[in-house]
């Protein structure tokens, strides 16, 4: 394989690793926003999940218990959001912002109290985190030219949570489009009054959407600290929740297009780190900051209707009053 093709393959490999937390958070955002609840608190839930996963994995020695803890904590954050905006009809953006700031403060404060390492968790040992999984027949396929390399580098060798994230995309699409719950969830984000008059509780439906969102963000958080990284570092979500929100909008609130947006954004991040200081043919050296800012710029352009049109769920942001 040529050097260029190999570099490209590594970039795609990095794309999948970097896109995984975005994919999980984007699915979370879709459930929440499709039910009519704006969710800028993806970021805070992600950060909370990352911290709790690392703390539990370190204490118990089991990464799966870490995932469980992360889900629990992230769902708790989601429930605060629900309590404020569904039960008490508060402003959804304000509530989301409060949760993000709370998460920043809580993770560091509790982190210092538990581990005395300036807000980090101790470095996780090998058994306490998700390692790469070797797929069957990697050694056998290894001898097949090109396809063998692609199989080894791109498809095999990721950790369990990467595959889980990819698996959860069709699951999310199935829930949204093929189940009664999904139909009602979509309806409650468009015309909640209709759902209500059909005798289905708007409040309970939205709460369930937020529980799903919390669950998915928890897994994403666990991925950050116990699969991609080896421990929690303060502010380790680093805006990924917001990029995921951009991906939700970019994917027009649908799972598969949102997945593609996440992969695109992941690719930009992966490529930017490989292209740092490397001049490209024809266009020269591309500032990495520009590539990192592209997801945000593209989302702004899309929202403004300059590239396609993004129509949010009709009832989004509006508390339901009987």
């Amino acid at each position: 394989m040529s050097e260029f093709a190999l570099q490209l393959l590594y970039t795609f490999d990095g794309t999948i690793r970097l896109a995984t937390p975005l994919i999980l958070c984007a699915m979370a955002g879709i459930f929440s926003e499709r039910s009519g609840v704006i969710d800028i608190s993806l970021e805070g839930k992600l950060l909370t999940g990352a911290f709790v996963a690392a703390a539990v994995a370190h204490t118990t020695g089991s990464p799966w218990l870490g995932v469980g803890g992360a889900i629990l904590a992230s769902v708790c954050m989601s429930m605060i959001h629900g309590f404020a905006c569904i039960t008490h009809r508060g402003n959804q953006v304000v509530s989301g912002l409060a949760i993000n700031i709370l998460a920043s403060g809580l993770t560091v404060t509790i982190g210092i109290a538990l581990f005395r390492q300036g807000g980090q968790t101790p470095l996780l040992a090998k058994g306490e985190r998700f390692g790469p999984t070797e797929w069957w027949l990697v050694d056998l396929f290894n001898h097949v030219p090109i396809l063998g390399t692609i199989y080894r580098e791109l498809i095999s060798g990721h950790n369990m949570l990467v595959y889980l994230a990819l698996f959860l995309v069709p699951v999310s699409a199935f829930i949204l489009y093929k189940t009664r719950f999904g139909l009602r969830l979509r309806a409650v984000g468009e015309v909640p009054a209709a759902v209500d008059s059909a005798g289905v509780s708007v409040i309970w439906l939205r709460y369930r959407a937020l529980i799903l969102a919390g669950l998915l963000c928890g897994i994403a958080g666990a991925y950050l600290s116990t699969a991609q990284g080896a421990g929690f570092v303060r502010e380790m979500s680093a805006g990924k929740g917001y990029i995921a929100l951009a991906a939700v909008i970019f994917g027009k609130w649908r799972p598969v297009p949102a997945l593609l947006a996440c992969l695109l954004f992941g690719f930009l991040e992966s490529a930017s780190s490989r292209l740092e200081g490397v001049p490209l043919p024809l266009i020269g050296e591309v500032p990495t900051q520009l590539m990192l800012a592209l997801p945000y710029i593209m989302t702004v352009l899309l929202l403004a209707g300059f590239i396609g049109k993004a129509n949010p769920p009709k009832a989004i942001g509006e508390p339901y009053i009987k």
Partner: peptide, 26 residues
């Protein structure tokens, strides 16, 4: 203190936004 830092302020800030803003109807 050895165990509490300025991040406590972020906590207070988050709680204030929650109670003054999001939970104002409560």
């Amino acid at each position: 203190f050895r165990t509490i830092t300025r991040e406590v302020v972020l906590l207070i800030q988050g709680l204030i936004i929650l109670f003054c803003g999001a939970l104002v109807h409560m």
